[in-house]
Computed example of a mutant assay.
Amino acid sequence: MELCFILLTIFFSNSLGQEFPLGEISEWGEHEISSGEATLLSDKKLQITNFHYDGEGPAAWFMVGKEKDGYTEERVELDGLIIPNEKGSCDILGAYDDENITLTIPKGMKFTDYSYLSVYCIENNHNFGYFRIKDEYAFTTPAPILLVNVTTGEITQQRDLSEDDAPENCDQENLVRRRRRDLGTPYRKYQLR
């Protein structure tokens, strides 16, 4: 008897392929930070055009967080999460010269679960600039891919493709601890979510 399988994926919404514009970065003129239009491409990807940053912040990373953080302030202690840069690296940000970049949020996270993306210096509690992610932005992702045995109807495999190119989470606590050790400053544990 020959077994036959069907590869099946179902889309539940017409919002697939929809993008949400976030505008240009809101900034205070520090470290030559600027950007063109940023766009939320999906709940996992955010594109920034013409991103410029001089790379001179002593401990700056991309960071996401919630509304309660006060992210619209320049000097603020944000309680967000460091996310990888466009290369999937958790290294301190270097210089960008009007580059078009696409950030992919780590596995198990979605940009739409957060209120902002910031370029934030943990060393000086300095928010160099931010993009607001509105609550009403919502994407519907495809259902997991199912491998179905057409003879028995049994589902033999499930796979969620939306996580395929997602980087690993940054180990925020160790990044901050290592940076403070390198600078000879006391380590202060950040509350991690």
Rank of each mutant, 00 (worst) to 15 (best):
L117I: 12
S26V: 13
Y53V: 02
K45N: 13
T39Q: 02
E86P: 01
K44Q: 11
L3W: 10
Q158Y: 06
Y187E: 06
G65W: 07
N85S: 11
A59N: 14
K45V: 00
R159Q: 12
S89M: 08
I6V: 15
W61Y: 15
K110T: 09
L175P: 01
N124A: 10
N124S: 13
T72S: 11
T102Q: 12
E168L: 13
R181S: 10
D135F: 06
G65Q: 08
K44V: 05
D91H: 14
D43F: 08
S15F: 06
V176A: 07
G80E: 02
N174V: 02
L7Y: 09
K110F: 13
P167F: 09
F11N: 13
I10F: 07
L16M: 10
R75H: 11
E24F: 05
E77W: 01
V64C: 04
L41Y: 06
D98E: 15
P186D: 14
T141E: 13
I83W: 03
E99I: 00
L7P: 00
Q18T: 14
E56A: 14
G57C: 11
F131M: 05
L78G: 01
T102D: 03
M109K: 15
N85M: 01
C170F: 09
N50W: 00
E30A: 14
L46N: 07
Q172T: 09
S13M: 05
I48C: 04
T152H: 05
T112W: 05
N127H: 06
L46K: 06
R193H: 11
G88N: 12
T112C: 09
D79R: 14
